[in-house]
Design a protein around this nucleic acid. Structure first.
Lengths: 143, 143
DNA sequence: TATACTTCGCTAAAATGTAACGATAAATGT
DNA sequence: ACATTTATCGTTACATTTTAGCGAAGTATA
């Protein structure tokens, strides 16, 4: 799906939720869509500055917070980086396969993984509210 | 197992591997053993300074790097914190249950989880070299 | 003891992330 | 249309986390 139509989808999704998909938010989301992999906040800031000359760290982080809150992007904990989500709305927990060579990030949704983790936790009396599952390695193209 | 004997075990483990378990490394490992949960590098630094008055950020990070390399401690990606490993040597990938209320960190080793993740990845042609699995939520005592 | 190697103390700075506040813009009620 | 409230933005400043580089001190080995 093209970036343009994906952005349009996001706009509609936000409006439907009563959130404002401002110019800044749209721009940042489009920037992230444009990347194969994940992008660090400061790399994003550098790119953003090309069009939004007065962007500052807080600008980026606020915008990322918004996008995170509405599930339009994800944050990779193991690399402090952000990646666009293409299928927001279906809000199940997700997992990531991160290629350490080319940087590609594949987002997957394995019910099996989630269930296994939740069940394992339950067996220790632990109640899971949020999970981080990230695998590093090599994608098929890089092996 | 007491902290003392755990430290002794670590010393033997290091010597057996030809690594030097210096005073600094021993102290930091003991500090981490003394905590229920994970500790940030700067919290650790503050505590360390009580006895090692000239400790600096680099001191802590270098020591943590060593302990990480030999598997004596783990790093939690979702909280930028470090936690002692009690059963180093058996070096399978591990998973963490992190209580967001009391800070307790339970380290588990679920073969099922690892296998499921690796198999899922394989189905995408992805070869896993390292995995990060961290669940946040509430421990049994905090629910 | 001479040599190589590792660890340590120190300084500095890079990379990542937040708090706070007033100005502006948009949404809402009258 | 106007006033009121709320959300967003620009800006400054700072806090946190992490790494690089260098020379001194310590340790192991020949």
């Amino acid at each position: 799906m093209s970036i343009g139509s994906q952005v349009e989808k996001a706009r509609q999704y936000c409006e439907q939720k009563g959130a404002r998909f401002t110019h800044l938010r749209e721009t940042v989301y489009a920037l992230l869509l444009d990347k194969e992999g994940a992008v660090g906040a400061y790399d994003l800031l550098d790119t953003l500055k090309e069009t939004e000359t007065n962007a500052k760290p807080a600008t980026v982080y606020r915008t990322l917070d918004f996008l995170l809150e509405f599930g339009l992007i994800h944050r990779l904990e193991s690399t402090n980086a952000f990646v666009a989500c293409h299928h927001f709305g279906c809000s199940h927990p997700v997992q990531f396969l991160i290629c350490d060579k080319c940087g590609l990030v594949k987002e997957i949704q394995s019910e099996g993984l989630q269930d296994t983790l939740v069940k394992q936790a339950e067996s220790y009396g632990f109640q899971v509210s949020k999970q981080t599952i990230e695998a590093h390695g090599l994608c098929s193209a890089c092996q």
